[in-house]
Amino acid sequence: MRYAMAMDTRKCVGCGDCVVACQTENDVPIGYCRDWIVEAVQGTYPDTVQMHFKSERCNHCDNTPCVRTCPTGASHVIEGGIVKVTPNECIGCGACIVSCPYNARFVHPEGYIDKCTFCDHRVALGQDTACVAVCPTDALIFGDLDDAKSPVSIALKNNEWYVLAPEAGTKPQLYFLK
C-alpha cells in the first residue's frame, strides 16, 4: 500500500476550501495550517502571462529526512507511507522542521511538531482525506499507488506530472498534474 495525492493544477481555482476543511477536520489551531495554496504566475505583462494554483501540503516522501533526523523516533512512517508525529514522544527540537525542504511542518502551540497526516483517521475508514472530499473542482485526487485502479494511479498514468524539488532526493508523493 502506498498512499499518494495528485493535484490537478488545471482545475484548481484557488478557493481555499481544502485549507479550511483541513483546519476544521483536524482542529488545527487558529493561525496555522497543514495545507496551503500557492499562486504561481509566469511571464511578464504585456507578453503572455500564465497563472495557476497549487494546493500544497506534506509530501509524505518515500525518503523522509524528517524521520531520519528525529532524535526520539516521534516522527515515524505508518502503513501506506504516511508520515506522522507522536506528540508525547516529540521534544519539539525542530530538527524535522529544519530538515523539510517543503516547510510542511510547524510548532503546534502546545509545543510538539504538527503536520498533515493525510487524514489517516479517515483513510483507515476507506474515506478520502478532508481536503480531497471537499474540493469543488475535483482538482485533488487521493488513492493507493499500489492499486492500478485507484483514482491517483489512473490520474498519474493519463497525465503529465511533476513533483516539487525532486533534486532534494526526498521522493515526494504529492504529484502535480499539468
Partner: peptide
C-alpha cells in the same frame, strides 16, 4: 525545545541516523 517537559525522551531513545 518547544515541548520542554518531554526532553527526557532524548534519553530513552537512541537513533543511529539522527
Amino acid at each position: 525545545l518547544h515541548h520542554k517537559l518531554y526532553f527526557w525522551q532524548l534519553l530513552l531513545n537512541f537513533r543511529i541516523e539522527s
